[in-house]
Amino acid sequence: MSPFLRYTLARLGFFLVAFVVVGLVSSIWLEWNSVTGLWIALIALAISAVASFILLGRMRDEVAMSMKARADKMHARYEAARSAEDVD
């Protein structure tokens, strides 16, 4: 599994857990409606963003390294094609 997909799934998991927890806690005091759902989603998004920033640093670095390696490989192929074009 690619590092990007693992990181994305981890972020989605953090959001879902935060959404469920915030939803359960808020259901004690609030009735569920579309506005409440939107606020719960926004609060869960903020919580999951902070949690992933703190807890997923190593995964984020792996994603950055794999993206850099892919970009370097694409750049090398581009340069090879460009230099071959110049020779013709």
Rank of each mutant, 00 (worst) to 15 (best):
S52C: 11
G57K: 08
L56H: 07
R70K: 10
V50K: 14
D72P: 02
V63Y: 10
L42W: 03
V63N: 09
K73P: 04
A64C: 07
A71G: 07
M67V: 09
A49R: 12
R60H: 13
I43N: 00
A71D: 12
K73I: 03
D61I: 09
A41P: 03
G57V: 02
A46Q: 10
L55M: 03
A76I: 01
V50R: 15
A49V: 08
D72L: 04
I54Q: 04
I47N: 08
V50W: 15
F53G: 13
A41G: 06
A69M: 05
L45M: 10
M65G: 12
M74S: 09
R60F: 14
D61N: 10
H75R: 15
S52E: 10
G57Y: 06
A64Y: 14
I47S: 04
D72G: 01
I54N: 05
M67N: 14
M65Q: 15
A44V: 00
S48E: 04
L42E: 01
L42S: 01
M74R: 15
A44M: 00
K68P: 06
L45K: 11
K68L: 09
F53P: 06
E62H: 12
D72I: 02
A76R: 09
E62W: 14
D72W: 09
V50Q: 14
A76T: 04
I40K: 08
M59R: 15
E62G: 01
E62Q: 13
A64P: 07
E62L: 05
A69V: 07
E62V: 00
S52V: 07
L55N: 01
I54C: 02
M67L: 12
G57C: 01
L42Y: 03
L56V: 05
I43E: 00
I54Y: 12
A71W: 14
I40Y: 02
A41R: 01
R60I: 03
A64H: 11
A69H: 12
A41T: 03
A41K: 01
L45Q: 11
I40A: 04
I40P: 00
V63M: 03
L42N: 01
I43Y: 00
L56T: 06
L42V: 06
S66I: 00
A64R: 15
H75S: 08
V63H: 10
R60G: 11
S66F: 10
A49P: 05
M74D: 13
S52I: 02
A69W: 08
L56R: 04
A49S: 14
S52G: 07
L55R: 04
A71E: 13
V63T: 07
D72T: 06
K68T: 11
R60A: 11
K73W: 12
A41H: 04
L42A: 06
S52M: 05
I47H: 03
H75I: 07
M74I: 08
F53I: 04
V50C: 11
M59Q: 15
A44G: 02
G57S: 06
A64T: 14
A76M: 07
A51Y: 05
A71F: 15
R58F: 08
A71T: 09
I43W: 00
A46N: 08
A71S: 12
R60N: 12
M74A: 14
D72R: 12
F53A: 13
A46P: 08
A44S: 06
I54K: 09
K68D: 11
S66W: 09
I40R: 11
L56Y: 12
S66G: 01
L55Q: 01
A49K: 09
K73H: 14
A69I: 02
V50N: 09
L45A: 13
K73L: 02
M59N: 10
V63C: 02
